[in-house]
Every structure is written in C-alpha cells, then in structure tokens.
C-alpha cells in the first residue's frame, strides 16, 4: 500500500474511549441513599474499602458520600461495624 502506519494517537476516536467516566453520573440509579452519622462513625474506612462505586470520600478527617455516583447498593450500611450509615429512601 505504501502508506506509513498510523500511531494510536492518530486513530479515529471510535477505537479509543476518550472521556473519563467521571463525566457520566450514575447517582440517578439510586432508590436508597446512604446517610452517615458522623457521631457514630469510627473512621475505620471499611465502607471506603467495600464501595464498588468509589463514592465514599475520605479527606483525612471524616468520610462523606459522593451522591453523583453512589448507586445506593447499601454495602456500606450493611458492612459498617458500628451501624453509622443508614439507607434512607430518596
């Protein structure tokens, strides 16, 4: 063919996903929202470990929930050893 091969940077965009999925909010899937009781929370971070949607945010002091992505599965509330997370209907 005589053509030089194209590098991956020159491929049409259809071959490569090019936007971060953080632009896609999955929070609207939710039926129940996790609500954290900061008084009860012992900062063990088990909720952070088990969250499938990276929606538990740890700032070094306290945890919070990122409702943009939380799908409301309820794993955090179920696994919390001190029951500091409650699932509340939206």
């Amino acid at each position: 063919m005589g053509e030089t091969l194209r590098s991956w940077k020159e491929l049409p965009l259809s071959a490569l996903p090019f936007k971060l999925s953080t632009e896609f909010k999955t929070g609207d899937w939710r039926t129940f929202r996790p609500v954290v009781d900061q008084e009860k929370c012992t900062r063990c971070l088990l909720c952070w470990v088990y969250c499938p949607d990276m929606s538990i945010v740890w700032d070094g002091q306290r945890i919070s929930v990122n409702y943009d992505y939380c799908k409301g599965c309820g794993i955090c509330a179920r696994e919390c050893p001190v029951k500091a997370i409650e699932m509340v209907k939206e």
Binding site: L20, F24, T26, P52, D53, Y69
Partner: peptide, 8 residues
C-alpha cells in the same frame, strides 16, 4: 466512578 457495573 461513573462506570456502569450494576449496583452492588
């Protein structure tokens, strides 16, 4: 986050 795997 923002992936579309099922909840849970």
């Amino acid at each position: 986050p923002g992936h579309r795997l099922c909840a849970g």
